[in-house]
């Protein structure tokens, strides 16, 4: 996105229209720049927050321009999208395209299970990924998990196996102002494993202000890479 230290670019984040006047059975139609419907991120919006489900790293981009179909039925919901692979720009780049989808049980339940797929070409890399995600809530505690497996193909069509596992434990205060969460993320790429642990806390003062702290540490890295740590602080104002 940025090619030199002084680059500037105006980026449109979530910007889409969902046409819902389609009756009881026909799908709604979404058009614009939206988050790819895959995994936990599809039901838990983390845009602009420190808490994240690693869409960008897993799928090559978190958001993309395109068209999608979606519907909430009595017992399940689904979202399928075709996007251009231009990431923040509404265009194709060297034949890029992505087909992504997720079907899940309804999000107001205590136990939610979802299945996702992703197939396409982005940044000149062909990728495919299949995932399953789970959420279980008991009073103010939540346990979340996402498992996905797939392949990416290098320019000379060499197949590289990839897998991703995320487990999260969180707790919200009864008035939802405080949220504590911890995650363990295991990534496998070409048989090499990296593990990351993180701990975060979020405080929402009102509808506008939100403050977050997050500490992230790589606990296992392939070869003898750095076991880096990252501490981040964020204050958000939403109007």
């Amino acid at each position: 996105m940025f090619n030199s230290p002084n680059d500037q670019k105006f980026i449109i984040r979530e910007a889409h229209i969902n046409y819902t006047a389609t009756g009881n059975t026909l799908p709604n139609i979404r058009l614009g720049h939206f988050t790819l419907p895959f995994g936990l991120e599809n039901s838990l919006d983390t845009n602009g927050r420190l808490l994240d489900y690693n869409h960008g790293a897993n799928l090559g981009t978190k958001l993309d321009w395109g068209i999608g179909l979606n519907k909430v039925h009595n017992r399940f919901k689904y979202t399928v999208s075709y996007t251009l692979g231009g990431k923040d720009d509404p265009k194709q780049v060297a034949g890029s395209h992505l087909i992504t989808g997720r079907v899940s049980t309804l999000e107001h339940n205590d136990f939610i299970i979802g299945a996702s797929f992703y197939h396409g070409k982005l940044d000149n890399i062909n990728r495919e990924r299949y995932g399953i995600d789970l959420q279980y809530y008991l009073a103010n505690w939540g346990v979340l998990a996402e498992l996905s497996k797939g392949n990416k193909y290098s320019e000379n069509n060499l197949k590289i196996n990839q897998s991703y596992t995320l487990i999260e434990l969180n707790r919200e205060s009864f008035n939802t102002q405080w949220k504590l969460y911890s995650q363990l993320i295991v990534n496998k790429d070409k048989g090499l494993t990296s593990k990351t642990a993180l701990f975060g806390i979020r405080y929402q003062a009102n509808n506008n202000f939100e403050a977050s702290l997050q500490f992230k540490k790589k606990i296992t890295v392939p070869f003898e890479g750095n076991k880096t740590s990252l501490f981040r602080v964020q204050i958000r104002y939403r109007y």
């Binding site: 819902t20 519907k71 909430v72 009595n74």
Partner: peptide, 10 residues
């Protein structure tokens, strides 16, 4: 509502 058209119809 999560899906207003369908839920209101119910």
């Amino acid at each position: 509502l999560r899906d207003p058209v369908a839920q209101i119809k119910q």
